[in-house]
Design a protein around this nucleic acid. Sequence first.
DNA 1: TGGCAGTATCGAACCGGTTCGAAAAAGGAG
DNA 2: CTCCTTTTTCGAACCGGTTCGATACTGCCA
Lengths: 338, 338
Amino acid sequence: MNIGEIARRAGVSRSTVSYALSGKRPVSDDTRQKIQRVIDELGYRPNASARALANGRTSTIGLVFPPAGNHYTGMQLDFIGSVVEAAAAYDYDVLLSPSGVDSDRSFQRLLGERRVDGAILMEIRLEDDRVDHLAALGFPSVAIGRTAHPEGGWWVGLDHTALVEACVHHLADLGHRRVAFVNRPEGLLRAGYESAHRGLDGFTKAAAERGLAVRTYCCGDDAASGQACLERILHDEPATTGLVTLNEAALGGLYRGLAEAGRHVPRDFSVTGVVAGRWAETVTPQLTAADVPAEEMGRRAVDLLVERLDHPGASPRHHLLAPPISLRASTGPAHGTS
Amino acid sequence: MNIGEIARRAGVSRSTVSYALSGKRPVSDDTRQKIQRVIDELGYRPNASARALANGRTSTIGLVFPPAGNHYTGMQLDFIGSVVEAAAAYDYDVLLSPSGVDSDRSFQRLLGERRVDGAILMEIRLEDDRVDHLAALGFPSVAIGRTAHPEGGWWVGLDHTALVEACVHHLADLGHRRVAFVNRPEGLLRAGYESAHRGLDGFTKAAAERGLAVRTYCCGDDAASGQACLERILHDEPATTGLVTLNEAALGGLYRGLAEAGRHVPRDFSVTGVVAGRWAETVTPQLTAADVPAEEMGRRAVDLLVERLDHPGASPRHHLLAPPISLRASTGPAHGTS
DNA sequence: TGGCAGTATCGAACCGGTTCGAAAAAGGAG
DNA sequence: CTCCTTTTTCGAACCGGTTCGATACTGCCA
């Protein structure tokens, strides 16, 4: 079941079999057919490790996870799914790297041991040592997210600043004056997560522009935290009439908190934010939100990475996406205290 | 940066370096230290492909996806996350295989090209050619799910029949007489998905035992389908007062449909089913449900696979899980038409 | 001081492919 | 029929590790 066996049965040399398969040198028609017949008969497939060793390419890309710990959100699932699918179209496999507790170890595994040809990094931080490290090494990688200094890098990003600004303007246009911001968990904000920081920046800036009274909160990635967070919001400022969130996993909890406080959405309270479309449609009333185009981002990241792998000298490229807000049913005009 | 370079700099032979690293033969203390110093200095890591070629083990396990198409549910995310984490603890990497459109191709890639030492299969069908195929090949694999003939196989399963029965009994105990079943999408049922079939069996059986009037539905994996499905349920039998679902992605839509029909949960209508705990807590009121222990299942699947890899002769093992129903807030006593 | 056990290290073969240079075979022109 | 070009195939080296058999070195006892 190795190439030598195929060669023996076809009565040719190993190199001829190799060339017949790769097409890198011409092989006469009848020997090719003879070889093909033997291959089909035995169901032969070349050994991936041997091939990787010989030509230095593993045909595998690494998908590097955050040091976020044990919690995965729905958005990440969409990334993973679309990356795997897009990679398969280019004949690449996808190796998942947890980079959980000690990210260095699995990072070393992926790069140091040459398990992958390139990497896609998820959950980027503004100052991200992984990105810097890879850039210093010249290792082909694409970030899903954008560091504080994205110039000269390869990445696919979402313009969280602009999206959150749009959310704030949307609420302000509806007459809301007291608005809260529900961010990702505090640990992630402190760790410098891009979405948390840029989203917060956009919120602060737009709120200042519109002269809104605002409060910002961090919130755990689960429904219970969302509910608790909403209670805190109404406790701190009962006159709050709207919120913007980046935290899709807390969304259900936020809604529950509103329901239990007797605030009807969207009559008494407007909710909006930046979340995956699937989640926006799950809650009732459906969330007016900037839908994170996770699938497109994953696909584009793979496109960029493959381009980079195919053309080692290519100059850096990136995509900054800013999808429009999908108007659904969770926001409405403010009244009463406005 | 290869073993020869290390050997040269340390003034020893390549085999000595290899033995110093693997410990498979004794190496004197000072040469070991000399070698280690060089390795640390250069940051050397042995090439994974070369190692895999030499000793026939890739230290990688494959995670095989369903032919389900482009839709991933939250449960799958939890499986993936826990599998990756558990595998990392055993020093295994995880290779994702879509097996999307033509599952054969990526299957061949994984096994035929020897990219992985073993595989974990997700989304099992009652008659699953992948399982049969692997069993015939004697290839080390563990299924997350259980075929119609699970004897002699390695798997981690969820007792959907028992769980759905428990849900039905729960509703019947509360006095509900007309109950609906919301299954996975029709395509999956027709394809023979285990959860869809066994869940349906349990529902039918328990409903018959309790003499309930029932209807069963298939429902797409998204909120819009859930809403449509609920409308159909109430249209077909307006006196329905409860439902059992396996479809977590439709859950939000089911709730919305109930709200729009003016049925209050749990006062007018009880909802229960088998879904991941995270989803059960997202909806309001929180779902009384059998929580799918996705994390535990993923972890156990890895444990079994590693055991199988370490002891090639070991006799088949499995785990059939049947977590209890978590009483939350979505079910209550029936009244009115009862 | 020779013989011997035991330890430390080395060289070579091997895993299964790819690739290069050269040899062999085929075809065409003189 | 020879010579030369072109096409087709072959053998050997290489990728970077692992592993086996054998050699070199050490210390100990007779």
